[in-house]
Design a protein around this nucleic acid. Structure first.
Length: 170
DNA sequence: GCCAACGTTGGC
DNA sequence: GCCAACGTTGGC
């Protein structure tokens, strides 16, 4: 199980758009960068966690959690002459571009804004925060994921079960 | 709108 | 393979 951060310009496709999908899922299509493509094709697996990030807005922010529901498969928009990111050089018999499918899990409210994230000591090594970082599909470490979830208001989960059981129910 | 940082293309 | 030119990303 691995973790990722996916960037999207909300004017193009927002987390609200994802949560509004009839089945809650969407194909993460249109990625036309080789490094990001390699992650989508080779590394992203079903069940992986995804931080949904809104870029090119002020403030940019992590706005939701999603989950991978289908691993890498050819991106159909590459073959569609009508599509924004049509790639006439891409051969359906040997696809260049790949997508995964993700499902919205829940929004992060309030969003975790970029200026705040930059102040968090545990996140200083995060790819998102590196100056000039442009990668739109990027890996997130276990530690970074935990920190983000904590900032999002999740209680820290412990492997150890509670000692009291029956008496606490109801 | 500005501009730094980056990825891709193409001439050589 | 090198590298300049170009186009894009994305924060500010």
């Amino acid at each position: 199980m691995a973790y990722w951060l996916f960037k999207s310009e909300p004017d193009c496709y927002s987390f609200e758009d994802l949560m509004g999908e009839p089945d809650g899922t969407t194909g993460w299509d249109g990625v036309r960068n080789f490094q990001a493509r390699n992650f989508l094709r080779d590394s992203v697996q079903v069940g992986d966690g995804v931080l949904f990030y809104h870029s090119s807005v002020t403030p940019a922010a992590v706005v939701g959690i999603a989950e991978v529901v289908k691993a890498g498969h050819p991106d159909p928009t590459a073959f569609d002459p009508e599509a924004d990111h049509h790639d006439p050089k891409s051969d359906p018999d040997e696809p260049t571009w790949f997508q995964v499918s993700i499902k919205g899990v829940r929004p992060i409210d309030p969003p975790l804004e970029l200026p705040m994230l930059k102040t968090v000591a545990e996140l200083t090594g995060m790819e998102l925060l590196r100056k000039g970082s442009r990668l739109s599909v990027q890996p997130v470490s276990d530690a970074e994921w935990k920190t983000i979830l904590r900032l999002a208001g999740d209680k820290p989960s412990k492997a150890k079960p509670r000692t009291k059981t029956k008496s606490q129910k109801g």
